[in-house]
Amino acid sequence: MTESPILFSGPMVRALLAGTKTQTRRTLKDQPPEWATFCQQPTMLNVLQQWVPSGPWAWSEDEQTPARPLRRWPVNADGEHYWLRPRFSIGDRLWVRETWAPLTYLTHNEPDPQAIIDGGFYRADGGTVDGEVSRWKPSIFMPRHASRLTLIVTDVRVERLQDISEADAIAEGAELSQHPGMDGGVMVKTDVPGVTASPGVWYRWLWDEINDKGAWRSNPWVAAYTFRVIKQNIDQIEREAA
C-alpha cells in the first residue's frame, strides 16, 4: 500500500463530495507501442501488470500442441518485453489535491468557522469567498495537510480510453438528468443549461476539456481506477485509526 497525491478539477471535486464520482481514468505514462497492442486484450494482465495472453490464438512452438500462455509477452524485434504498469494499485490511498487558498489569503471579512477548521478555502465550494481571497493556489501546490478528501483504490483496470462503458461514464461523476433520452436511455446534464447528453458523449467532452481538444480521438491506453471516497484528510484517518 502506498500513499500518493492525485489532482482533480473543481467539477470533479464537487462530484467526489456529492458521492457521484467513484472512478477516474488516467493516461498511462508510457503508451504501449503498436507492436505491443496489436490483437491484445487488456484483461490479460497478471498481478504484476504484465501481459499474459492465452487462448486458442496464443503462440506455440509446435502447431500440434495446445497453445501455451506466454508469461513474458509481447516482445519486439530486439527481444525486449513490454510491461504495463499503472501508477496506483488496489489498496493504495490517494489524497486529493484541488485549488485552494490558506486563511492568510483572505483580504477582508472574517473567515467562517468551517474555514478555520479547514485552515483555508476550497474554490470548488463555490464563489462565496471569490473576490475576498487575494489569489488561489493551483491544485498541484496543495499541501498534504490541506487535503480534505482521501480515496481508497478498490479496483484497477487497463484499457483503451474509448472502451469506457455507459455505466463507467456515469461513475466518472456525471450528473444524471431527470429526463430520459428519446430511446429511454439514461441522460446526463452538461454545462449548457437545458442540454443533456448520453453518459459516453458527456465523458468524451469532459476528457477533451481536461486533456485538450482531440485527446479523445487519440484513444490512449488508460488506467481506470475505482475507489471509495472518505471525506477526511489522510493523516486524520491515520490518527483516528491509531
Rank of each mutant, 00 (worst) to 15 (best):
L149D: 02
D155L: 00
F141T: 14
M187V: 11
V229N: 06
I152N: 04
G126Q: 11
D155W: 00
W205T: 02
A169W: 01
W221V: 13
T128A: 14
A224D: 07
R160C: 02
S165M: 01
W207K: 00
E132T: 06
E209D: 08
K213I: 10
A124K: 10
P180I: 14
P220A: 13
E209S: 11
D168F: 01
L206Q: 08
S139E: 15
A169V: 04
K213D: 09
P180S: 15
D191F: 13
V186I: 15
P220V: 10
G173H: 06
R148Y: 02
P220W: 12
Q178T: 15
K213C: 08
V153M: 00
R123W: 13
N211C: 04
H179W: 15
R228N: 11
W216Q: 09
W207G: 00
P138G: 09
V129I: 09
V192N: 09
M142W: 10
S134M: 05
V188Q: 09
W221I: 14
D130E: 11
A171T: 02
A223M: 06
S177Q: 08
R148C: 05
D155N: 02
D208E: 06
Y203Q: 04
A223C: 09
D168T: 05
P180Y: 14
A146Q: 03
R157M: 04
D125Q: 15
G173F: 04
R135F: 12
N219H: 12
Y225R: 05
Y122L: 13
D125R: 15
W207N: 00
W216P: 05
P138T: 11
V156K: 00
S134N: 03
F227A: 02
S198L: 07
R160G: 02
T196Y: 04
I164R: 00
R123Q: 15
V195C: 08
E132K: 10
V133M: 07
L161V: 00
T226Y: 03
V192T: 14
L151W: 03
L206N: 03
Y203P: 03
V188E: 09
G131E: 06
I170T: 04
S218P: 09
E175V: 13
I210E: 01
Y225A: 02
R160I: 01
A124P: 11
A124C: 13
R217T: 10
N219S: 14
F141L: 15
Y122R: 13
